[in-house]
Design a binder for these strands. Structure first.
Lengths: 334, 334
DNA sequence: ACTCTTTACTTTAACGCTAAAATCCGCTCG
DNA sequence: CGAGCGGATTTTAGCGTTAAAGTAAAGAGT
């Protein structure tokens, strides 16, 4: 490894002069500067970022910590990246597998020191666990869990989104709508908040809420969605609509319906949540709740920047608005 | 920030004793150890990783540097993560947008110092540019570009995969197969290597190769795939098969065909490349070339570990084998 | 009683960088 | 012609950690 000291020796100057040339801080006489640059070139010197980070107490790096790199989080990450880079910082992604231990570890003093700010998608931690986190580091939480007031937090209008999608299918004739991936959890989480919206749409329309139509799944994958819906079909429980908690799960439903010879939207209407890029293209077009990834990314990064710039006011709790994007999988669509 | 020195003062011992307690290096008498631990708890001390990294000359972190966090790379990243973690290291992802400058910057001495090893998905850099990279840091390159011999490199059997998919459609009756997203580039890259396979399948079957069926696209998105195929349809060029360079592009083709009232596979057979999770579920099931992400991840990480462990033998150039996964979008399928 | 270990802990000296203070030197000005 | 100034460069001092060498004291061996 080539150090500044090597360059200094080669150029016959002090280490500080090299530093000043390399960082363009204090002015350096042209002939000296040229000698230093020549030495830099000759030796192939580049600054040691670890040392700079230690000395500066900054890393100019922001981490986005996600449950998985897949699907939804991949898409959001790609929106976040340019916003971080626009401020001259680097973005890195880390993964927690959604498990509470990893999420907690990501928020440990030690890990946080590596970054100037952190965006964390919470899925595993609850309010109490988050409350144990004590740090002044700028953090913005994303996700559908309940979080302590002192954290900046961006979440989606889950209930409203689910209500919109379900109401839309009811309006177009569905009477028995499976809540695929929904749960009756009492804690705030994606699956329960979205179930509440599904439920409210039923009540609003004067329909009863039948718990048999709430079908939990083990993982939010298409495979799990498909399997769960095939089970419903096999059970003989009659249904004419499916609200899937995510588009990935909805894709599994698409497969299950196709395999079972059920036509979308004629026999069964289908709506998802997230409006992934893919959803536009899966025939006949997946009706989905759009939470405006780009807007969520901007809000979250905006809050983070504000905090990194020294803002000390109260934390904000933003609920990102949603809208329903109607496509061919429901009868209002094209 | 709480430093080791603060803990040392609080516990009435030297800094090294704190270090020894925290890292369980040299043995420390139980009463002392207890005092130190109490001080650690009381002050909420955690090690400063930046300082440790500087001191140790290691970061215990591996970076996977990808063009985008989306789709294919998201899926591969999720396979790579556990393999890195199994060796007790952290994995972080960085993004290049596929542009040569960012890829080069990721390979700069400065950035490489932050990691003990780097996996880089190359799409923008050519052999000459890569040849300028001089570093002893363990690096494994992934991707379809041509790379200098001295780098470990894992790529897919692009030509063979494209040939398999195309031959399969020819075998089942297609005679005019669009190479959607293919190009006539002479440099080795995904789009040209896969075109060569498409071409070879034609020759092997004694069919002529008609350049009008090679349809480049601007980006590897479903939107671009859909638009390009709609243009083909609008142009009146007759076709009865589509080989799409990636599954994401193939999904765009699915949409274009559905919108145009062309039935898959009856009117047009369709095959993609990558065998993404989604491809199994998009009706009628997307026939795709599977490159075994998991195997690729294992190979790449294996090479990286070997290099990080000090291996100095010649670099390896692995071509990951592919197989065709036949589904409903071609006539051999279910 | 004196070496020789062993155990427990401390001191020293980096890792590579840079902010801030100090020094050096040529030049202007009273 | 010496004080004073300003620009160029160097020295000093640390960022927080830890490997390695050092010290001090208690116990073992002859």
């Amino acid at each position: 490894m080539v150090r500044m000291a090597d360059v200094a020796r080669e150029a016959g100057v002090s280490v500080m002069t090299v530093s000043n040339v390399v960082n363009e801080r204090l002015p350096v006489n042209e002939p000296t500067r040229a000698r230093v640059m020549a030495a830099v070139e000759a030796l192939g010197y580049e600054v040691n970022l670890t040392a700079r980070h230690l000395r500066a107490g900054r890393t100019d790096t922001v981490a986005f910590i996600v449950p998985s790199f897949h699907d939804y989080f991949g898409e959001v990450s790609d929106k976040i990246a340019p916003l971080i880079e626009a401020e001259g910082r680097h973005l890195v992604l880390e993964r927690t597998s959604g498990c509470p231990e990893h999420e907690m570890a990501a928020l440990s003093v030690a890990r946080l020191q590596l970054y100037d700010g952190v965006l964390l998608s919470v899925v595993g931690l609850d309010r109490d666990q988050l409350d144990r986190v004590r740090t002044a580091k700028p953090i913005v939480l994303l996700g559908e869990r309940d979080v302590p007031d002192r954290f900046n937090h961006v979440r989606l209008a889950n209930e409203e989104g689910a209500r919109l999608a379900t109401a839309h299918m009811i309006e177009h004739g569905s009477r028995r709508i499976v809540g695929l991936g929904c749960t009756f959890d009492t804690a705030h989480m994606m699956t329960s908040d979205r179930r509440i919206g599904w439920e409210r749409a039923h009540r609003d329309a004067g329909l009863d809420v039948d718990a048999r139509y709430v079908v939990p799944i083990s993982t939010f994958t298409s495979a799990a969605g498909r399997d769960a819906l095939l089970d419903v079909i096999a059970s003989g429980l009659p249904f004419d609509g499916v609200f899937a908690v995510t588009d990935v799960v909805a894709l599994g439903a698409v497969a299950a319906l196709a395999e079972s010879g059920l036509r979308v939207p004629t026999d069964v209407q289908l709506a998802g949540f997230d409006n992934l890029d893919m959803s536009r293209f899966v025939p006949p077009g997946l009706t989905s709740v759009d939470a405006n990834h780009e807007g969520v990314a901007e809000t979250a990064v905006g809050l983070l920047h504000r905090q990194m710039a020294g803002w000390t006011g109260p934390a904000e709790h933003v609920v990102a608005p949603v809208r329903l994007v109607v496509r061919g999988s429901t009868r209002g669509g094209a």
